Simulated assay, not measured.
Amino acid sequence: MARDIQVTFDCADPARLAGFWAEALDYRLQDPPDGFESWGQALEAMGVPRERHNDAAAVVDPKGAGPRLFFQRVPEGKQAKNRVHLDVRAAPGLMGEARMAALEAEAERLVARGATRLHRHEPALPLDAGHIVMADPEGNEFCLD
């Protein structure tokens, strides 16, 4: 039996990072609990102080196929290269120049939303079809693949 997974990001600004990843993956912010129109309204009803409202955020795949991404505020900043990262499949089925052009277009879109471009790896067939290494707004590395 396959298990559901959640990918958790430690970060400084959960709302900002959740918004970035929702845009990057065509996800959406997780809805507030039933009976509430917004997370702010729900958190106030739960007695969470206003200064703690950005302690966590989550995004979900609207189709229900991908994992939930959870963002939690931590006091320390990112220290080193990620040991685990996401590969964003931005050019499925494409090879060569068409693949790299699709990856470049996605890199530009994400840079406009706060990402940083780190490295481009040219195709080295037969195994590596080429990819672009990026960082999200808080420096977490990911690949456009």
Rank of each mutant, 00 (worst) to 15 (best):
E51P: 01
A24E: 07
R16E: 00
E106W: 06
A105T: 15
G114E: 02
L43N: 00
F70V: 13
A112T: 09
D4M: 13
A15L: 00
H85A: 06
D34Y: 02
P49T: 09
P137D: 09
Q72K: 10
M1S: 13
P75N: 02
C11D: 02
E122A: 15
A42D: 00
A22M: 07
P14I: 01
K81S: 12
Q30R: 12
A18V: 00
E44F: 03
F20M: 03
A135S: 08
M100K: 07
H119W: 11
P62T: 08
P137Y: 14
P137H: 12
P14G: 05
Q41A: 12
M134H: 00
L17W: 05
R52Y: 06
M46A: 13
R50K: 11
E37F: 03
Q41E: 11
D145N: 15
K78H: 08
P123W: 00
G64F: 00
F9S: 04
D31H: 08
E51W: 03
D61Q: 04
P75W: 00
R16A: 06
R113T: 04
P75G: 05
R50M: 04
R68D: 04
F9H: 07
V133N: 14
Q30I: 11
P49A: 12
R68A: 06
A90R: 06
D61K: 07
G93P: 05
V111M: 09
G19C: 13
E141S: 14
M134Q: 04
R52P: 04
R3D: 11
L86N: 02
A129K: 10
Q41M: 04
G66M: 05
V88F: 07
F20T: 01
V84I: 15
F20K: 01
V84M: 14
A112C: 08
E106N: 13
R50N: 04
L110H: 15
G139L: 03
E104I: 10
G40F: 00
E104P: 05
E76P: 08
P33F: 08
A45N: 11
E44T: 09
A107S: 14
H85S: 09
R3I: 13
V7P: 01
W21G: 01
L110I: 15
D136F: 09
P92N: 12
G19I: 14
L43W: 01
C11L: 09
A124L: 15
A2D: 10
L110A: 15
D61Y: 03
H53I: 02
R3V: 14
A98E: 09
G93D: 10
M95R: 15
V133R: 07
L110V: 15
D4C: 11
A112N: 14
E76S: 15
D10Y: 13
G114F: 00
H53A: 03
F142E: 05
Q41D: 13
S38N: 02
F36H: 06
R117Q: 12
L144V: 04
P137I: 13
E51Y: 01
D136R: 10
V74E: 03
V60S: 01
G96A: 12
A56F: 09
M100W: 01
H53R: 08
F70R: 10
G47I: 06
E76K: 13
